[in-house]
Simulated assay, not measured.
Amino acid sequence: MVAAEKAVREVEGLPLVVLRLGSIYGRGVMGSIDYALANVRVACEDPNRAFYNIFLENGKLNVVHAEDAARAILHAASWYLQGRRQGTRVFNVADKSDYGLAEYHKIVCDLQQVEFPSPPRVFRALARFALKIRWLCELMITQGSKVWIGLLNEHGIVSTPLNYSIDFEMSSTPWGISLDGSAFCEETGFTYQYPTLTQETLLQCLNYWRDLGAWPDEENCPGRKY
């Protein structure tokens, strides 16, 4: 992505607006938030679920709702053409949530009523370092996927786009996905309909999969708080 952006910016006089989108979420959108929902559901079945809570305080995940992402693209095109602007302009598009990865993890856990122990920071740092070893990361994905498939079979779910997954880059780097989208709003006048990620919008994402019959019920989950 960075290489492609660099290449087009080197073309002199090219009329272009580049939008760097945060992690997109929304009903039916397959993104980091939806994978986090599935990952927590899998971890809920593991008595050693503390290992899944390995996020450091400085890790970030800036997001943007799918509807705002679509509106931003149309808005940027209109702003550029109607203003008769020239050259290549680059903007980040991300809402104002500015949550850390650990905060997102807690929000997802609270939504599913899952209680997660918080391991010591040293343990979390070592676990994240281990995930830099790709084969180990792939092994964890394989094991988590087996649990997920077992849950689907147990609940009679024959088809779902959701799966257990680990974002290798996000897991092995300390910063995650960090974008400041304020310049796009200030310079172009864009406003977000979904300025922050809330429990309500996150619940809409989860209920979408529930309504499709593509989500294993959490009622008898061993890690659930009652």
Score class of each variant (00 low, 15 high):
Val2Trp: 10
Ala4Ser: 11
Glu5Ala: 11
Lys6Ile: 09
Val8Leu: 13
Val8Lys: 05
Leu14Asn: 02
Leu14Glu: 09
Leu14Phe: 14
Pro15Cys: 03
Val17Glu: 01
Leu19Trp: 03
Arg20Tyr: 06
Ser23His: 08
Gly28Val: 01
Val29Tyr: 07
Ser32Trp: 14
Ala36Ser: 15
Ala36Tyr: 00
Ala38Asn: 10
Arg41His: 03
Arg41Ile: 03
Ala43His: 13
Asn53Val: 02
Asn58Arg: 15
Gly59Val: 07
Gly59Asp: 09
His65Ser: 09
Ala69Leu: 00
Ala76Leu: 02
Ser78Asn: 11
Ser78Gln: 11
Tyr80Leu: 04
Gln82Pro: 01
Gly83Glu: 04
Arg84Asn: 12
Gly87Ile: 08
Thr88Glu: 04
Val90Ser: 02
Val90Pro: 07
Asn92Ile: 06
Val93Arg: 02
Asp98Ile: 03
Asp98Pro: 02
Asp98Arg: 09
Tyr99Cys: 03
Gly100Phe: 07
Gly100Glu: 08
Ala102Ser: 14
His105Gly: 12
Ile107Trp: 06
Leu111Pro: 07
Ser118Trp: 10
Ser118Ile: 12
Pro120Gln: 07
Pro120Met: 05
Arg124Met: 05
Arg124Gln: 13
Leu126Arg: 14
Leu126Cys: 14
Ala127Asn: 10
Leu131Ala: 08
Leu136Asp: 04
Cys137Phe: 12
Gly144Trp: 12
Trp148Leu: 11
Trp148Cys: 11
Trp148Arg: 13
Asn153Glu: 15
Glu154Cys: 09
His155Lys: 11
His155Asn: 11
His155Gly: 04
Gly156Tyr: 04
Val158Arg: 15
Ser159Gly: 07
Thr160Asp: 03
Tyr164Val: 01
Tyr164Gly: 07
Ile166Arg: 12
Ile166Trp: 03
Ser172Met: 06
Thr173Trp: 07
Trp175Ser: 13
Trp175His: 14
Ser178Asp: 12
Ser178Pro: 00
Leu179Arg: 04
Gly181Pro: 05
Phe184Pro: 04
Phe184Ile: 07
Cys185Leu: 13
Glu187Leu: 13
Thr188His: 03
Gly189Phe: 08
Phe190Asn: 13
Thr191Ser: 14
Tyr192Lys: 02
Gln193Glu: 10
Gln193Thr: 05
Gln199Val: 01
Glu200Thr: 07
Glu200Leu: 03
Leu203Cys: 00
Leu206Asn: 04
Leu206Glu: 10
Tyr208Val: 00
Trp209Cys: 03
Trp209Glu: 07
Leu212Pro: 00
Gly213Met: 04
Ala214Thr: 00
Trp215Cys: 03
Trp215Tyr: 12
Asp217Met: 11
Cys221Thr: 08
Arg224Val: 13
Lys225Phe: 01
